[in-house]
Design a protein around this nucleic acid. Structure first.
Length: 574
RNA sequence: GCCGAUGUGGCUCAAUGGUAGAGCGGCUGUUUUGUAAACAGCAGGUUGUCAGUCCGAUUCUGACCAUCGGCUCCA
């Protein structure tokens, strides 16, 4: 915590704790740091139940208290102060580490704290805060510990910045992909299959478009597509290591013959089987095997969240088998694909380098090597990156693609993983140029990540206004009166024969109503046909952006929209 | 899984210890409309599920199911 905003928020957390202690004196307070967009404080309220209905009361108390607060002063104390069990645990730990124990005092409130805090008087600058939500959180993040009550809030140096942030939250709420998905009839969920989306006709249109784009771009780059079994015998996962390292996330099935099968949570084991299905030569490398098979992962019920966290999904997956000296070049190739895809969606991104996790497979030597190679690669890429400690896959380190959406939120989408382990487990080899048998290295990579998750993010990023190439309905044809229906249908069929997704709105509604509905459905183009158009054999075009393009020649419009679709121009209409 | 909240027709929401209403949507009819909502009528709900209390439950209690917000940020 080294910047002013964090100090402000950290101080706000103290204020929150002070207010809570006044209102519920028997509460045991624990810790309260500044976090990315605000702060929180964890409390043990004992028998008392706190809900969001209590927040206004706490906020009011905070405003009241802060009026009497001056600066935050560090107390140097040689003896520890009275402490509850949580604070005592922290103090004991600090003593063991030989660290200095300090307290901060603000008003009459004293808390164990390393600082730093705001330097000016709290009554002057600690005014623009808001408590946002209440939730449970385990003491020290471990589910083995007691569940505490966490109160989240945010604070800013000015009312305007606070308002802007709250408006951003409201905007995010409006863009919620679950809401848009329902309104646009893209996908749905049913309680009979929690966490597993149903894709409705309109959602399936762009699901397929995304896969089509993936297929085209990868075929060009030497990828070959495969598909493999969704359910495999336990033995496959024992060899791959998933049975030891990933079992708690797998759906398992017993058959009448007492065989144990598992639904595949990842495609890698099957890709290994394909590689090993015949004698391989170095001449085949890099061997790029892609697939979009369905995967199932048993995620905890409480973690499910619309399309962003699901139990059934597909990935734009590929396993690339390379020799060691091809690793670097192949990563460059994948980076080029990444750049292509994310620029098409107008999504800025950075990399996260994930190092070895605790639950890892393989020997230290190989991990050292893999991590060293990957670190060099990500540095050489010249792309912005940061390190995520322990974020690697159990079989190797990885580079994650972290994208930033239109509201400035970060999301993890794609991942590119370096794996020396699983090919070894499967005893894969190829004939090298020198005649020896060598083990290939595998690069696991997804660019979209999960299609489901990517689509969820895309919906929120674009607020449902898909670029024309992805829009479920690209053109709405709106006849003004019934006598224009025939002409409207001829326009529709001309568009359809040119592979443009067009629909006639043949309801006996006013033009305004038809426009309104097309507008809410975020249809990129509306073609309006009335007496004038029938007469002139033209079409009147209106864009989703509200622009009236006037009367156009149908053939000209067709040509332009085709160019736009082929060029996959984002967010821009003609 | 754990903490908290929520669950009423397709959607958004109202109401009540005496078996539920509205708007939008849907259907039908009228209207034939020129750039973000024409008018009228009709249909549609064992109030998430299962138990319990009660003369009576959708309303109270419990269990379960599902959904939403969190459970990584270390004084």
């Amino acid at each position: 915590m080294d910047n002013k905003l964090d100090n402000l928020r950290h101080s706000a957390a103290h204020l929150l704790a002070a207010a809570v202690m006044e209102l519920w004196p028997n509460t045991k307070r624990t810790i309260g740091p500044a976090i990315e967009n605000g702060f929180y404080y964890d409390f043990d309220f004992g028998e008392v139940k706190i809900s969001e209905a209590d927040l206004p009361k706490i906020e009011k108390k905070m405003h009241e208290l802060v009026r009497g607060w001056g600066t935050f002063d560090q107390l140097q104390e040689t003896t520890s102060r009275e402490a509850n069990q949580y604070k005592q645990e922290l103090i004991d730990e600090l003593k063991q580490k030989g660290e200095k124990i300090t307290y901060y005092k603000s008003g009459n409130f004293i808390d164990l704290c390393a600082g730093p805090h705001i330097e000016s008087k709290a009554s002057d600058i600690l005014k623009y805060f808001k408590l946002l939500k209440v939730s449970g959180a385990y003491w020290r993040g471990s589910e083995k510990n007691k569940m505490l009550t966490r109160i989240y809030g945010t604070a800013f140096p000015s009312q305007k910045e606070l308002d802007d942030y709250l408006n951003m939250l409201a905007e995010a709420e409006k863009r919620d992909h679950k809401r848009i998905g329902r309104e646009m009839e893209l996908f749905m969920f049913h309680e009979s299959a929690p966490g597993m989306p149903y894709w409705l006709p309109k959602g399936m249109v762009f699901y397929n478009e995304l896969i089509k784009f993936w297929r085209e771009e990868h075929q060009k780059r030497g990828y070959q597509e495969i598909s493999s079994p969704l359910i495999n015998k336990k033995q496959l996962y024992e060899v791959s290591g998933h049975w030891d390292h990933y079992l708690e996330n797998m759906f398992i099935s017993e058959t009448a013959e007492k065989e144990t099968y598992g639904l595949k949570p990842m495609n890698c084991p099957n890709a290994m089987v394909v590689f090993g299905s015949k004698t391989r030569s170095y001449r085949e490398l890099p061997l790029r095997l892609g697939d979009t098979d369905c995967l199932h992962r048993y995620e905890l019920s409480g973690t499910l969240n619309g399309l962003l966290r699901v139990r059934e999904f597909r990935q734009d997956d590929a396993h690339i088998f390379v020799s060691e000296d091809q690793i670097e070049q192949e990563f460059k190739n994948v980076f080029e694909i990444t750049e292509k895809f994310y620029s098409v969606f107008n999504m800025p991104y950075r990399f996260r380098l994930g190092n070895r996790p605790d639950n890892l497979m393989g020997d230290t030597e190989t991990w050292d090597k893999a991590e060293k190679i990957l670190e060099k690669i990500v540095k050489d890429s010249g792309h912005e990156y940061f390190v995520g400690q322990n974020e690697g896959a159990f079989y190797g380190p990885k580079i994650d693609i972290m994208m930033k959406d239109a509201l400035g939120r970060d999301w993890q989408t794609g991942t590119i993983q370096l794996d020396f382990q699983i090919p070894r487990n499967f005893k894969l080899d190829y004939a090298a140029a020198d005649g020896s048998q060598k083990t290939p290295v595998c690069i696991h990579r997804v660019i979209y990540g999960s299609l489901e998750r990517f689509i969820g993010i895309l919906i929120e990023h674009l607020a449902g206004a898909f670029p024309t190439w992805l829009a479920p309905v690209q053109v709405a044809v709106l006849p003004i009166a019934d006598r224009h229906l025939e002409y409207a249908r001829s326009v529709e069929s001309a568009l359809k024969s040119a592979d443009i997704r067009a629909e006639v709105d043949d309801r006996s509604e006013t033009l305004s109503a038809k426009i309104r509905d097309a507008q809410t459905q975020k249809v990129p183009y509306m073609i309006i046909v009335g007496d004038k158009e029938v007469e002139a054999k033209k079409i009147a075009v209106r864009t989703r952006g509200g622009r009236d393009l006037g009367q156009l020649d149908l053939q000209k419009f067709l040509k332009d929209i085709k160019i736009e679709v082929e060029g996959k121009r984002i967010g821009k209409t003609i």
